[in-house]
Amino acid sequence: MGKAMLEVKNLKTKYITRFHEDVYAVDGVSFTIEEGKSLGIAGESGCGKSTLALSMMGYYFAPLHYISGDIIIDGKNISGMDPDTVRKTILGTEIAYIPQAAMNALNPTQKIIRFIEDVVHAHDPKKDKKEIREMAEKRFAELGLPAEALNKHAVELSGGMKQRTVIAVSTILNPKVLIADEPSSALDVTSQKMVIKMMRELMEKGYIKSMLFITHELPLLYNVTDDIMVMYAGQLVEKGSAEQMVFDPVHPYSHGLMKSILVPEEGTRGQKLTAIPGAPPNLKRPPDGCRFAARCKYAKPECRYSAIPEKEFEENRMYRCLMGVDELREVYGNE
């Protein structure tokens, strides 16, 4: 086992709405990413995967609030740290973030290089501007981005360029963990490929040491990350290697998720797509028992009241269901 770069232990965060109601968007999530590894998180909209990304930054502002749990980056526990210390010493240098909508992630009226200067100066106020420019130019060249982009405003860049610029800016300080929240979802296929290629390069060249990749497209994860977790209603429901998760899912929700998306492989043409019936539970008052029970076709009465623990099985695999692994495999094998 490699060195753990990011360890999240029983993390809980909530949103406080403007009517002062609590929404438990991340409810006891634990996982580890080792050095040189990448982890993908999949789930439908509103399952809390984007909130999980925000929660892992250790930097909270309304309406998101921290409740409990640990975030350990390369052995350093950042939860409970003073926000200003987190801002100065963690954000951008230890952990970096690529937002969901890169289209609007850059200040439209600022030149890219000025923004990079601000980012660097936030951590090292004395750094010379010339040095920063050299550093930025070098990094842009290595990632295959034109140096002219540095002198442009965000509005002058195309969508794909904008996204790649955002990635380059986010990783300019060589963070140990990179959290990418659907970085390619809004792009066309070519730009998507370039973005994926760029993320791989970042890992290969060692600019980033580990990566958490969030998307609602499972097949994309299969191509990008080493491991995959599936999230449902603020909790993890299954975890395994990319290979296992796509070809041997265990949890009923993972099955549903796989069936509801198209995997572009031979023989899948003409395969029927099925949506999961029903809607996720209201996270203002999450159900006591299994959160998926209401939509699960194999749910038993006891699923609804007893809390379901995470269960380890095989090597490096986990799932959260009352039924046994063999039982589940049998049920879905017969479908």
């Binding site: 930054m57 930097y59 502002f61 801002r87 100065k88 963690i90 954000l91 951008g92 240098t93 970096a96 973030y97 937002p99 909508a101 289209m103 609007n104 992630a105 850059l106 200040n107 439209p108 009226t109 600022q110 923004f115 601000d118 980012v119 936030a122 951590h123 955002v166 800016v169 986010s170």
Partner: peptide, 28 residues
């Protein structure tokens, strides 16, 4: 509420500086 505010925050930029961005953009 714009996305760049959140993004800039997560890169460790000081709130005061971000407020500067916001006001410039709102003022134009």
């Amino acid at each position: 509420n714009a996305d760049y505010v959140k993004y800039s925050r997560f890169l460790g930029i000081k709130d005061r500086k971000i407020v500067g961005y916001v006001f410039r953009n709102a003022m134009l």
